[in-house]
């Protein structure tokens, strides 16, 4: 198969946002710029850089990234809350991600509202962001435990208001590869927007669920370098990129040669002890014949 014939997908890297939420990891402003630049150089087109509403230090770091000469689109993460969106706008973001919880568990227990309320808040937030000229993507939190029809409804509402894609977030990592394949063959033909898959690694399945969903036809996937992130982490950039190329013949646009240095950079900056089992393609570490 020639390179130009390969199916293409896009990586949305969230090392600087979800990755940094990993216990004990803090990136300084210059760390964030370094990582963003390295991702950009490696061919990553979407970089979710942080959460402006988190405060002054975060805003400062984000402004530095926005000022850097990067080709990638730099995204701010927001709840569907006016203050969040305004903070992103003030920070200078053109790309804004607006996340709403969509499982009944989250809607009832976390925000104590209704599905209707969620849709209304989402619409208002999208309109607000767009009124400032932002490009908006929408996030469906806890989609892994949500009613699939409601996910489609959220996508429809978001599409009507001009969002460009919707993130399916398996917030507690409870999908299996088989259920992911089934779910996405159902969702993809019915969804009003392209889907970005965002998987978590609680059962060691984040990278696997990600590549299965992409193979089923999803266009975009969230990753973090070395799979860092909440609890057991996210889909690992290296694992996903290599599996896509080698096992599925899918082109993610990411330079394979940069994967190892990206991992090393994040491990150094995060201050995490260098642990061999950190999630990175093993084929980089152990040549096949060393293992037989």
């Amino acid at each position: 198969m020639f390179m130009k014939d390969r199916r293409k997908v896009k990586i949305v890297d969230t090392t600087l946002r979800d990755g940094e939420q990993s216990p004990g990891i803090v990136f300084s402003a210059s760390d964030k710029v370094m990582i963003a630049s390295a991702l950009d150089k490696a061919g990553v087109e979407w970089i979710e850089a942080g959460v402006p509403i988190m405060g002054k230090e975060e805003e400062e770091a984000l402004k530095h990234i926005l000022a850097a000469p990067l080709k990638a689109k730099i995204i701010a993460w927001n709840r569907a809350v006016t203050a969040d969106v305004l903070a992103s706008v003030r920070c200078g973001f053109s790309y804004v991600h607006i996340s709403v919880p969509i499982s009944d568990l989250h809607i009832k227990e976390k925000i104590k509202k209704t599905r209707k309320w969620v849709l209304e808040e989402l619409e208002q937030a999208i309109l607000l962001a767009k009124s400032f000229g932002c490009t908006v993507s929408v996030g469906a939190e806890d989609a892994g435990r949500a009613d699939r029809e409601f996910f489609l409804q959220v996508a429809e509402v978001a599409a009507k208001r001009g969002a460009i894609h919707i993130r399916f977030a398996d917030t507690v990592g409870c999908l299996t590869p088989v259920s992911t394949a089934e779910l996405f063959s159902f969702l993809l033909p019915r969804c009003s927007l392209p889907i970005e898959v965002h998987m978590h690694n609680d059962f060691g399945l984040a990278s696997a669920n990600t590549v299965v969903a992409l193979a089923a036809g999803a266009n975009m996937a969230s990753t973090t370098i070395a799979g860092i992130g909440e609890r057991a982490g996210n889909a690992g950039l290296g694992e996903v990129v290599m599996a896509l190329y080698d096992l599925y013949g899918i082109d993610s646009g990411v330079d394979v040669g940069s994967l190892e240095s990206l991992s090393k950079l994040v491990m150094e900056l995060s201050g995490l002890p260098k642990v061999p089992q950190i999630r990175f393609p093993m084929l980089y570490k152990n040549p096949r014949n060393a293992c037989i």
Partner: peptide, 10 residues
């Protein structure tokens, strides 16, 4: 090698 062992086993 690609982080898929558990998933493949499942």
């Amino acid at each position: 090698a690609y982080g898929l062992a558990t998933a493949n086993a499942l």
